[in-house]
């Protein structure tokens, strides 16, 4: 990354060259792939996240994505878009910036500390239902990784949609650990299954926070890491199915996670009872599990909307 010539400190004021809106910087939130994100306050007193970058084209691509998803009705995919403009710094250089919804949350790693094991499955379901919505819109997330997620109000939120790609195009941005191409498990074409693979790697990372490299036999490495993880034992089969390309879409994978979570919570039913569940009944169970999960997710989103 190039050194930035400009200096933005808390209290700095950024005025837009085109739209004329002014934002006061509160603090730095973090550095993204192509810029720095700050917490800021608008002249109306609202709090937003503001990203300043160098590469104007890349910033515009991100804005285009944010705008697209602000328009999607119902499900909220990524932060909503507020403003885009250029800021001329005191040294007369022009820096593109954009303003979006501020998502207050904690990184996945911190969130999972001290939580029960079931959260692994719940996070997976939340991710998959967002992906289901995104895929239905004709897009693939692309660079899906732990760094691009925050948990606010017990709900996963995407904070960086810079890698979102129209289905059928080439993935332009990826992180090796989450990339199926790196693991020899498929192409870098933007397909729903590309994101599903990344979800399994986010799950593996919960077990191996320091991640791991592919070694000489990538497929064997993955299998070995998966079987050595007690945390992922309940989901091992789903993850393997995903790797073998047997799961086609997010909804299907989500349902599989839902049914596992429901089975595990039914402590009273003995193994024999579970065996007796015929296919018909397990269908019903799956349906019940789904509606339960949907209820929970809906409840949480209403709750988060309220505050």
């Amino acid at each position: 990354m190039k050194k930035r010539a400009f200096d933005i400190t808390p209290g700095s004021c950024l005025a837009g060259k085109w739209n004329g809106h002014t934002y006061t910087i509160i603090k730095k939130l973090g550095s993204g792939a192509c810029g720095i994100v700050f917490l800021c306050r608008s002249s109306q007193g609202d709090t937003y996240a503001l990203k300043v970058g160098e590469d104007s084209s890349r910033m515009m691509m991100e804005v285009n994505m944010l705008k697209k998803f602000s328009k999607v009705q119902g499900a909220k995919l990524g932060p909503s878009f507020v403003d885009v403009d250029d800021w001329v710094s005191p040294d007369r250089k022009t820096h593109p910036f954009y303003v979006m919804e501020y998502i207050d949350g904690v990184p996945l790693k911190h969130f999972l500390k001290g939580k029960s094991k079931e959260w692994v499955g719940i996070i997976a379901i939340q991710l998959l239902s967002d992906l289901e919505n995104l895929h239905n819109e004709g897009y693939v997330f692309g660079d899906l990784k732990t760094d691009n997620l925050l948990i606010g109000n017990s709900r996963v939120r995407w904070i960086d949609v810079g890698g979102v790609t129209a289905t059928g195009r080439a993935i332009k941005e990826y992180t090796e650990f989450y990339d199926r191409g790196y693991w020899g498990r498929g192409s870098r074409k933007a397909e729903p299954t590309y994101d599903l693979f990344a979800v399994t790697m986010i799950l593996l990372e919960m077990s191996y926070p320091k991640r791991f490299e592919k070694g000489n036999h990538p497929e064997k490495t993955l299998e070995a890491k998966l079987s050595a993880s007690p945390l992922l034992k309940p989901y091992r089969k789903i993850i393997q199915q995903c790797w073998m390309g047997k799961i086609q879409d997010a909804a299907e994978m989500k349902n599989k996670f839902s049914s596992i979570l429901l089975k595990r919570s039914g402590k009273r039913s003995s193994s024999r009872m579970q065996k007796r569940l015929t296919t018909q009944e397990s269908d019903n169970v799956e349906l019940a599990a789904l509606s339960l999960m949907a209820g929970v997710v809906f409840g949480v989103s209403i709750f988060s909307f309220w505050i």
Partner: peptide, 11 residues
């Protein structure tokens, strides 16, 4: 090999 994988995902 990886470069070819990336670029061949394009149309």
């Amino acid at each position: 090999f990886d470069l070819s994988l990336s670029l061949n995902a394009r149309s």
